[in-house]
Design a protein around this nucleic acid. Structure first.
Lengths: 100, 100
DNA sequence: TCGCTTGTTCGAATAATCTCGAACAAGCAC
DNA sequence: GTGCTTGTTCGAGATTATTCGAACAAGCGA
């Protein structure tokens, strides 16, 4: 929690979001969130250190792709599908195709 | 000329292409090519040094977004629209929207 | 309270990217 | 040939990303 800030859709920047999506680890996280809905950070690390994942989640949050809800001790992450779709229509669909 | 290689669509990698698109200069180049068709490198530099633009064009080529045709002394660049669309449907449309 | 769990933050090392001047290659005109 | 133009390549510097251990904060249960 604390200084976790989520930008409003008007503040989304395309290049920032594309950069966030251009990392294999983060892209896999986004796909898992799209497939399985809300998940904790722990469920999404691929045996990677927590500090590494925390960094990736921060990049995803700053871009607007992910919202982290600090419920209880475990944080829940969700994909901001509607907001991203409204701001950059078609982008998520293109990136989430299984064969991509 | 020389070692300019253009990957076939099967070799396109999504993360690589997203990274190529995540730079403001390169995104502007891609948009200009989409809007105006084939253009030389000189027509696309924004008063940036040639070596800088050459670097960006190489990133764009390696990702599969741009094809450079070495006709005469001036090289012509074109957006590989159909190939990108076939490999990652919807991606270019999403990125080329004017309001993005 | 103590211990356990989940994530964040800090700091540092490593790696990758971006930028740009200088030198080079190739085509064209004269 | 010389000169001019267009781009590439090389090299270096500066900036930014990525990775990860260590320390920290906060919630929950015994």
């Amino acid at each position: 929690m604390s200084r976790i800030h989520h930008p409003p859709p008007e503040a989304f920047e395309l290049t920032r979001m594309l950069h966030a999506l251009s990392d294999p680890v983060r892209l896999e996280v986004v796909r898992s969130l799209a497939r399985n809905g809300e998940q904790t950070c722990a469920a999404l690390d691929g045996d990677r250190p927590k500090s590494t994942m925390s960094h990736h989640f921060r990049v995803l949050r700053d871009s607007g792709l992910v919202e982290t809800r600090g419920e209880r001790t475990a944080h829940l992450n969700r994909l901001r599908r509607e907001e991203v779709e409204a701001r950059f229509p078609g982008l998520l669909d293109a990136v989430l195709r299984p064969e991509s």
